[in-house]
Amino acid sequence: MADVRDLYQEVIFEHNKNPRNFGVLAEHNRHAVGHNPLCGDQLTIYLEVDEADTVQDVKFEGSGCAISVASASLMTQIIKGKSKAEAEEIFQAFHDVCTKQREADDTPELGKLSVLTGVRDFPSRVKCATLAWHTVHAALEHDEEGASVTTE
C-alpha cells in the first residue's frame, strides 16, 4: 500500500508543480468556471471543440490545492482528442471510483488518472479531485456559469 501512496503523492506533486496545458486557450469556443467553496479551489477550463464534438484542444487556469491542480492537468491530457461522449464516460468512471461506486480495477479507461483515485480514502478531497471534471462537463454542455462542487 505504501508504494501506491508514494506514486499517488509523486504524480500529484509533479502535476501541481508543472501543470500540463496550463493557461488561456486563445482559440476556445467553450469555457466554464469551477469553484470549490470548501477548499477555495477555482478553475477555468477552455475547450476547442470541433463540429463532430471532439475536443481538439484544452487548457485550464486557476488556483487551488495540489489535488485539484493535478487533476485538472491530468484531465487535459486525457480528454484531448476525445469525443464529448468519451470524455463524459471517463468523467463518470473517475467520479464513480472516487465516490466508491465502482472499483478502480474496473476502469482501465482512466489510465494515469487512476493514481488520483486514492482520494476515495479521504472523502473531503473527492471534491478537489473532481472539480476539473465537473467544470469540463459544464463547458461541454455550454454552461459557462460552470460548476460549484458543494456536494457529491
Rank of each mutant, 00 (worst) to 15 (best):
2 A>V: 13
4 V>W: 11
4 V>G: 00
4 V>C: 03
9 Q>M: 07
11 V>F: 02
11 V>T: 07
13 F>S: 06
13 F>E: 06
14 E>D: 14
17 K>L: 06
20 R>M: 12
20 R>E: 15
23 G>C: 05
23 G>Q: 03
25 L>G: 04
29 N>I: 11
29 N>Y: 13
29 N>Q: 10
31 H>P: 01
32 A>K: 11
33 V>C: 07
34 G>T: 07
35 H>R: 13
41 D>C: 04
42 Q>W: 00
44 T>N: 09
48 E>P: 01
50 D>L: 04
53 D>P: 00
56 Q>F: 03
57 D>G: 01
57 D>Q: 12
58 V>G: 02
59 K>A: 10
61 E>R: 02
63 S>W: 06
68 S>E: 06
68 S>W: 01
68 S>P: 06
68 S>T: 15
73 S>A: 09
75 M>C: 15
76 T>V: 07
76 T>N: 11
76 T>C: 13
78 I>T: 15
79 I>R: 13
79 I>L: 14
81 G>C: 08
89 E>G: 09
90 I>T: 15
97 V>G: 07
98 C>Y: 09
105 D>M: 06
109 E>L: 05
110 L>W: 08
118 G>W: 00
118 G>P: 00
120 R>P: 00
121 D>E: 10
123 P>Y: 09
123 P>C: 06
125 R>H: 04
126 V>Y: 01
132 A>Y: 11
132 A>F: 14
133 W>T: 12
135 T>R: 12
137 H>A: 13
143 D>T: 05
143 D>F: 00
143 D>H: 12
144 E>T: 14
144 E>H: 14
145 E>V: 01
148 S>C: 12
149 V>Y: 01
151 T>Q: 13
